[in-house]
């Protein structure tokens, strides 16, 4: 390695350690560039060993509370805001930095507030997931919300029993709730109160049972066709 190259690599690594990756990425010669990247990895490892500080995390909301004790994760922040606006809806013991646990009673109002309030502006419902937590814990519905303007995201969980599960519907707040809730109803049997058209979406209308529950038993025949595996000796 010539002196020029060594010099170039040293400077590029120094700049990259301060956060400017362009110096490394702009090196034209591929061999030198890869050497610079290797030197950078080594330098970073040394720096981590000597300072013994956790390296800065990127955009994941879960880790916000670890490296900076003063700030909270978005989930904790919004749990506080919701609790102040709608008392008795947030279940404080079960909420954490990864999610907000809500009681089902006023979910529709909370949802409207989350969508319309200028500090929140959660205009995008990303995903509704139904979960079967087992016999003792019942079912749960999890909502992932995201804001296109403020770029923050939270997760809300609402628990319900598995005997007669009911959760208020938010399809009037986020239009995609319509289909997501129908799918959760189809797979788990959770009834969404206030939904204008709650019926099965993926399975046929005359299907029996809620497939994604852990205690689901497949029905024997459907319109005369045998459902479970028929052919012998396949296991």
């Amino acid at each position: 390695m010539t002196d020029n190259q060594e010099q170039l690599i040293k400077e590029a690594v120094k700049k990259a350690l301060q956060g400017d990756m362009d110096a490394v990425n702009n090196i034209e010669d591929r061999v030198t560039r890869s050497k610079a990247k290797a030197a950078l990895v080594k330098a970073k490892r040394e720096a981590a060993k000597t300072s013994a500080e956790p390296s800065a995390e990127e955009k994941s909301e879960e880790s916000g509370s670890e490296s900076k004790p003063a700030s909270q994760s978005p989930n904790q922040q919004f749990a506080g805001i919701i609790a102040s606006q709608f008392p008795n809806t947030v279940d404080e013991e079960l909420s954490s930095e990864t999610h907000i646990q809500l009681r089902p009673a006023k979910w529709f109002d909370v949802a409207q507030y989350l969508r319309d309030d200028p500090a929140c502006l959660f205009d995008s419902l990303q995903c509704i997931t139904g979960v079967d937590l087992g016999e003792d814990s019942g079912l749960e519905v999890r909502y992932n919300l995201h804001s296109m303007t403020h770029r923050h995201a939270i997760e809300i969980r609402i628990a319900c029993s598995d005997k007669n599960p009911k959760v208020p519907s938010v399809e009037a707040v986020w239009r995609i709730g319509d289909w997501f809730e129908r799918e959760t109803y189809d797979m788990f049997g959770i009834k969404f109160e206030g939904h204008r058209d709650l019926r099965r979406i993926l399975l046929p209308d005359d299907w029996e049972g809620w497939p994604l529950r852990k205690d689901y038993e497949v029905q024997e025949t459907y319109h005369g066709i045998v459902v479970p595996k028929v052919k012998e000796g396949w296991e």
Binding site: D123, S124, L125, Q126, M148, W174, R175, I176
Partner: peptide
Amino acid sequence: GVLLPEVAISFG
């Protein structure tokens, strides 16, 4: 079939 941005975001 014009899709307005607000409708699009609400529908995910």
